[in-house]
């Protein structure tokens, strides 16, 4: 390129053009830094990666033992089921035996006592699963029966606002 500066009186500092490239690069670098830094500042403990494989294998070695205990429980379950099945066959296959005891021979008081004394540990969900809620009537869970008149009287005395009853509007 031809130099076109024909002594117009302008001057530049002595080393300006020589150092221009470096200055420009520095400027670009500093602009870059002001946007998003590349270094996040996270550190890791010394020699962490050296021991990692060992830690993982020791964990892997631990875990199978748990699996074995679960399996051995399973074996007990199977044998328990087998025993129960054999007993069931034993009782059902001999219908002519005079002293044959079955579930209807158990006095209901004994069954009630068993349920009273034994904590079955059932959650409300488990109970709900076995008891058919659809077939239940309110009176099944109450000790004394309530007639409609009592309910109306109660509501008359105790309800200030009809809205509390959540009755659909077309029902009254």
């Amino acid at each position: 390129m031809k130099k076109t500066n024909k002594n117009s009186g302008f001057k530049v500092p002595g080393d300006y053009l020589d150092t221009f490239n470096d200055n420009l690069l520095n400027k670009i670098a500093s602009e870059d830094q002001s946007s998003i830094p590349k270094n996040e500042g996270f550190k890791i403990p010394e020699s962490y990666f050296n021991s990692l494989h060992k830690n993982i294998t020791s964990k892997l070695d631990e875990k199978p033992t748990k699996v074995i205990t679960l399996k051995s429980y399973k074996k007990y379950y199977y044998s328990a089921i087998a025993v129960a099945a054999v007993l069931l066959l034993f009782f059902t296959i001999q219908p002519n035996k005079p002293n044959n005891i079955n579930i209807s021979d158990l006095a209901s008081s004994e069954i009630d006592a068993y349920f009273e004394d034994t904590d079955l540990g059932l959650s409300t969900y488990e109970i709900a699963e076995v008891i058919p809620v659809d077939d239940l009537e309110l009176n099944d869970v109450l000790e004394t029966t309530i007639n409609d008149e009592d309910i109306v009287n109660y509501l008359d005395d105790n309800t200030d606002y009809i809205n509390e009853l959540n009755i659909e509007s077309d029902e009254y």
Partner: peptide, 11 residues
């Protein structure tokens, strides 16, 4: 295990 300065914390 974090030695970042103000900029890195802001990031």
């Amino acid at each position: 295990y974090f030695e970042g300065d103000e900029i890195q914390l802001n990031l």
